[in-house]
Design a protein around this nucleic acid. Structure first.
Lengths: 110, 110
DNA sequence: GGGCGTTGTTTCCTGCAAGATATAACGAAA
DNA sequence: TTTCGTTATATCTTGCAGGAAACAACGCCC
């Protein structure tokens, strides 16, 4: 009858590091191999996608994405090993949080 | 170095029932005894405050606020016993959630 | 009945987030 | 050195959420 929902995100010194939207674009990049294709596949403007990735880079202590501009095929963007770890870590925490909140709500019997 | 943050909210059939903003206005109403004064005390427009309270009423199974229009002093808005319980329940869950997430992040050592 | 200070509602206006558009820079390969 | 598709960045435009303001309705009290 009542449902509890949540959004979580991780901040660094210079703003948001990871959140649901950033995870989404990272996964699309992993799939597509380029930021522009990833944005297109999500129906998102390139600018918005770039801003998300930019904020990730600004706050990451270890590189999450490697961008290559120029070259054959124009370049591209890859997710690092560390980035892949961060994605699964975030999704894991997020799921745990949902479970935790459902449990909390159930205990209350509103 | 990294900080994890969250927002939680509770939804009913017709939209959001409780969230951080709604809790804030409810507490201000409890303090001021009227919606218009509560809005003013928070620097919030009356319309926004009214919309928040309206959505609470639309989704509450048991009344959270009692409004009186007209009368000496023009009327006012009061929080019910149930409303007070909901406020503390929400704040309690919210705090538990923060603690839980801090713990989750610590376990990861990003 | 008139005055008062609320709640409830409509209309208008505006600032800003977000999209659309344009363009420079890049570097490998032919 | 020309081509190509990308990253990176600036500028312009626009939709709409949210504020401002105005006003009706209400009911107690004098």
């Amino acid at each position: 009858m009542y449902q509890i929902k949540s959004r979580i995100w991780i901040e660094g010194d210079k703003g948001v590091f990871l959140g649901e939207g950033r995870i989404k674009i990272l996964k699309a990049i992993e799939l597509e191999g380029s930021l522009s294709k990833a944005a297109k596949s999500l129906g998102m403007s390139y600018k918005k996608a770039w801003n998300l990735v930019d904020s990730i880079n600004k706050n990451a202590s270890i590189p999450v994405v490697i961008t290559n501009t120029g070259g054959s095929g124009g370049g591209g963007t890859k997710i690092t090993e560390y980035g892949l770890k961060m994605i699964s870590a975030f999704e894991n925490i997020n799921k745990n949080c949902w479970d935790f909140l459902d449990q909390q709500l159930k205990e209350l019997q509103l």
